[in-house]
Each structure stands twice: as C-alpha cells, then as structure tokens.
Write a protein that binds this DNA or RNA. Structure first.
Lengths: 199, 199
DNA sequence: GTCTATAAATCGATAGAC
DNA sequence: GTCTATCGATTTATAGAC
C-alpha cells in the first residue's frame, strides 16, 4: 500500500526539521566552515545523500538557521513592548525570557548568530541579511524602551546606544559563557539589569 | 656577499612575527577551520610555501596564537593584584587595561580565545591547554580580588563565581560587539563595574 | 524517500629548483 | 631564504540503484 501524498508531506516536514536541529548542534560546535555535511547527517541519523535531498547546499542550511535566529530575537523585543508595566518591567520581562532561552538549547542559536556576525566565512545571502539592517535591529528596537525608562527615571541617563551595547554585550557574553561552561552559575534578570538601572 | 648568521636570524624572527600577525587577522575573520594557509600567506605577502618553512602546520600557528592570548590575559590579572589601592581600584585598573586592549587589535585575540573555547574544530594541543585549568584560570584568579572587595564592602555580596562570570561575560561580549561594529560606543570601566559594585 | 558509488574541486603539506 | 609544482587526503555535490 503506497503512502498518501499527505503522509509524504509529513515525512518531508519531519526530515527537514530533523536536519535543521542536527545542523544547529553541529554548526554551533564546529562552526560553519568546519561542519561537514556528513557530520550533520550522522547527527540526524541519515545518510549524507539525504541531506542534499532536502537542502541545496550547506550554505542553505546555515542561512535557514540564521534567519530563524534573527526572527526569534526580534520577536522577543516586540512582545516585550506589548507587556504591561513600566519600561524597566518590560525590560525585566524580556531579560527573563532571554536568560531562560540561553539556559536551554537557545544558546546554540546565539552562537550561530555570532558566527554570522563575526565570521567572513559565511554565505553571501547571510551577509546580506546582516547588512540589510536586520543586524543592529535588536539594538535599534530596544532604544525606545531604554529612552522611555530614562524619562521615567528608572534607567541611568547616558547615551541610549551605549547602554544598549552594554546590555546586549552582556547577554551575548552570557550565552557564550553558558556554552563554554555548561554548569556556570547564571545571574538573574535583576543582576543583568544593573548595567542599565539608575542608582 | 652572503648574509651573516645574525642577519639570517633577524630575518627568521621577522618572518615568524609577520606570519603570526597575518594569521591572527585571518583566523579571527574566518575561523580556524575556514582559514586557508594561502590566506595567511597572502595577508603576510608571502608564498604559501614559506609559511610551511616557519611553521609545521596550520594547527601550530593557531596553537601559538592561543598560547599568547592566554598568557596575556593571565598577566593582566597578576599585574592588577600588584597595583596599589583597594580591591575595587585594582579591578578598575584591570578593566581599563582590558577595555583599552579591546579597542585596538586586542579584540582579535579575544575572538581567537573564544573560538578555542567554543569550537570542537581545534587542534588537540589547544584543547589540552583549555582542559589543563588554564581555561577558567581567569575566573579563578579574579576570585580573591572579588572576595576582598566584598569584605571591604565595595562589591555586592553574592556568589563570587557568579559575579566573575557576570564580569567576564560582559568583557567578552564587549570584545565581540567591538568586532561586529567597529565604531560602537564603548562604555568606560565604571560602567562595566556596575555589575560588581555594591549599591 | 533513502542509500551507495562516484565525480569534481579544494586545500594542507612536501619536494625540489633558484 | 623563498618560490613553484605537485601529491594526497578530504569533502561537497551529483547520479543512479533500490
């Protein structure tokens, strides 16, 4: 009895997701360039031929992951601004979400994004995504939140861009620390927000 | 007229340093795996054959750079503890040194170290260096400073390890931000130390 | 849909000329 | 000391069998 088209579609979706999950781990651990298609295939439990059945190239897999990571990070900021409460409370909500994310598999996505930002050895399409302003969108999108907090006297009066850099540097650094040292003690949101809060 | 042995030695030292400088840039930009020997040779202005005349392999070049980076970072901590003043003042001195370093070429060394920490695709010798405790030596070496500061009431009372993680995460994140965004506004030492200071 | 065999290209490393 | 030519291994990507 042959499979229905519906079942085939389900298999395809499943495989695609399995490959992406496997690729995320391999890319994070070995980097885009050092990651071999055979590594990804082995991690997912398939032959390397199958990977090429679902993705045109290694670059396409990497691009897909970066896209997902960027979308995810902009979403968190949007949700934060829809939360109730003062700007500082919104920032606290967002920080909590991010810290929670970092503690799980989410740290890998941070590493992928960082590779995309710092490495030259990435697909042209990914470079494009970075240049198109999506790159600093996180900082830009957070500026209104910071400025509102400053007017409310909750956040220290200083260059908002500098404060945003400070904040995201800490977040990014924590994600890396978590990967470097799996059981490292993680600070809570309020400790992170000390870099922003008014005295 | 043939060169004297002295002149030859000088040429060798010079070439070795030129290759290391070029390799630092290439490794930081492309990662250990993606970096090609021909890239390094081109950056230094030599043929790829000459690189192999001075280094046994690509791995050896990478290991040499990681070693230098690790030595440098432990040195700063040692010097900091020899500075006069309170623990917080010593930390401020150290933070200033690091921030100054990051603003220049030093950021590349941070990236190299981070690759060494996070990537699986690195030489066995380098992994050894990390495992041998040199890895978290920065955090360990800073603990006395933090604890002294807590007793003096200058630093907030909390798990010293957690505070060290917070501090170094921020430092590391700032180094990465600086590479991602060459002209990003950098905070001063006191802004960084807000994550440690007592209220 | 999945696998194995294979082509094509890339790159680390060496040998030998100058 | 420096360069060019070349080997050998690895890896991406494809073709074709099941």
């Amino acid at each position: 009895m042959p499979r229905t088209e519906e079942q085939n579609q389900q298999i395809r979706d499943e495989r695609q997701e399995q490959i992406l999950q496997a690729a995320l781990k391999v890319f994070a651990r070995r980097g885009m360039a050092a990651a071999k298609i055979s590594d990804i295939a082995a991690e997912a439990g398939f032959s390397h031929g199958l990977v090429y059945h679902y993705f045109k190239s290694k670059e396409e897999i990497f691009s897909t992951l970066v896209k997902k990571a960027l979308q995810g990070s902009t979403l968190v900021i949007q949700y934060a601004q829809q939360q109730e409460g003062s700007p500082l409370q919104q920032l606290r909500w967002m920080t909590n979400m991010i810290l929670q994310n970092i503690s799980g598999e989410g740290a890998y996505l941070f590493l992928i994004m960082m590779q995309a930002f710092t490495s030259d050895a990435i697909p042209e399409e990914v470079k494009q995504m970075m240049d198109d302003g999506l790159a600093f969108s996180a900082i830009k999108a957070t500026l209104p939140l910071i400025q509102a907090g400053q007017q409310a006297g909750e956040i220290m009066p200083d260059d908002p861009v500098k404060l945003a850099v400070l904040y995201y540097s800490l977040i990014q650094g924590l994600a890396i620390s978590k990967i470097q040292w799996k059981d490292c003690p993680m600070p809570d949101a309020d400790m992170v927000l000390r870099v922003l809060k008014a005295k």
